[in-house]
Design a protein around this nucleic acid. Structure first.
Lengths: 232, 232
DNA sequence: ACCGAGATATTGCGATCACAAATTAACGAA
DNA sequence: TTCGTTAATTTGTGATCGCAATATCTCGGT
């Protein structure tokens, strides 16, 4: 058994144990606290989170349906491995889904929203400068979610989050491999595109954000070997 | 409690009870055997499927993470209701996701695949003529899945199926309202577009398939009232 | 040293039960 | 009859246990 660290999170009052386990594991996977290919067991997760088996099992089931945890043929569990082909596919899906979501949100954009995005972007700059990767990832999620959830009938956010979950573990590995986060800040461009309600500019900003943020470094890391290297 | 009919399905040898419950409920929702807004309880589902609570609970959790079942604030369960806005959003997502999936599959298209698609399309014609709606829905799923899963690294199919799950209950309602399935057969066009590997033609065929199949009648049904009418 | 058979430990699965919260039903007063 | 209170029921939740399958370790033979 390795030293599996699951970051703590805050939960609203009245949440069930299962919801707590789900959110906490989900967060851990999304911020990359668990490496690709890591084997998980119900009992060890229960011990780590100091919970009984039942809520863990239900949380794991949900995450398996979100493609965040893989259930092998022998029913054992693991965080999926990353391969060049899968990485390429996931990045393409991010672009397709997030471009759709952002453009679809444009009719609902308000000045208030733009202000909120600016505020979040500034907090991200601060977190970046301070090297707080978990916080940066968290803020980045909120930043994008703010834009994508404007349409009250939106159904795209769960899909986007499923992709984020699948990229999370690998993303952290990339960051560790590079020794830091390499970010060309496309958020400023995105905010401006949103402000002027320009669909084409929005698409360009999102494509740039997704591609520059991960693709180059991710491809480089995957090219080193079929098997993803273990970074210390 | 009403007469909730869950169609039986066949399962591979060695599947767990939970997997059986999941697949059976999932199928029931996708073919529209459960109406939008239907309230579900763990115990009644367990009784209907002649299973104990545990596997049902896990199946329900998975389906809730796929947006097929809604968990209300008081933890009670129901199949989501349909609204005009949500319907519009889901149809748009079908077009975006399925267009992406089909175009992405083009490099992997083989003559064998085209033959298989033709064969399935013919079986669908037969099922349509015979008025077997469940079978038609099932074949339609296989038809599209065949094309979308060609890329061995594909990650889009779970997302598409989540949308199908959300449209399933309403789709059946539309069909019953119209007294039959009204289909302009776009599959022939799709097959031809796939055969000549034309991305634009593929996009057009899918857009046509999704739009003509549901949108007009769906919008009409929803316009009658904010609340979806109950069709006998 | 290497391999295979048997023993042991681990692991996921499913059933059951008690509990608490919410819903529904029953009932009495105005 | 109608409304508000209380009792009874329903329902989801979480803990625990035994079982069967799988994986891992042990040890003896070659």
């Amino acid at each position: 058994m390795s030293t599996l660290t699951i970051p703590e999170i805050e939960m609203p009052e009245g949440a069930t144990t299962q919801e707590y386990a789900y959110e906490r594991l989900r967060n851990a996977i999304m911020v990359g606290a668990i490496e690709p290919g890591t084997a998980l067991t119900i009992r060890s997760l229960a011990e780590t989170l100091a919970l009984s088996l039942t809520p863990i099992r239900e949380a794991v089931r949900r995450l398996s349906s979100e493609s965040a945890i893989e259930v092998l043929g022998n029913r054992r569990l693991r965080v999926p491995d990353m391969t060049p082909g899968r990485f390429d596919e996931l990045v393409r899906l991010r672009v397709v889904l997030e471009t759709y979501a952002a453009q679809r949100s444009l009719p609902f954009v308000s000045d208030r929203l733009v202000d909120d995005m600016v505020a979040l972007d500034e907090r991200m700059d601060a977190s970046y400068a301070a090297g707080e990767f978990n916080e940066l990832t968290h803020l980045n999620r909120r930043f994008h979610g703010l834009l994508y959830c404007l349409n009250p009938d939106q159904a795209v956010m769960p899909l986007i989050e499923s992709i984020w979950l699948q990229l999370g573990p690998f993303q952290r590995q990339v960051v560790r491999h590079l020794g830091g986060v390499y970010v060309v800040d496309h958020h400023k461009k995105l905010i401006e595109a949103v402000r002027i309600r320009d669909p084409e500019a929005v698409a360009a900003a999102i494509e740039g954000d997704v591609t520059d943020g991960l693709v180059r470094s991710g491809r480089a890391l995957l090219k080193q070997d079929k098997r993803v290297v273990r970074v210390a």
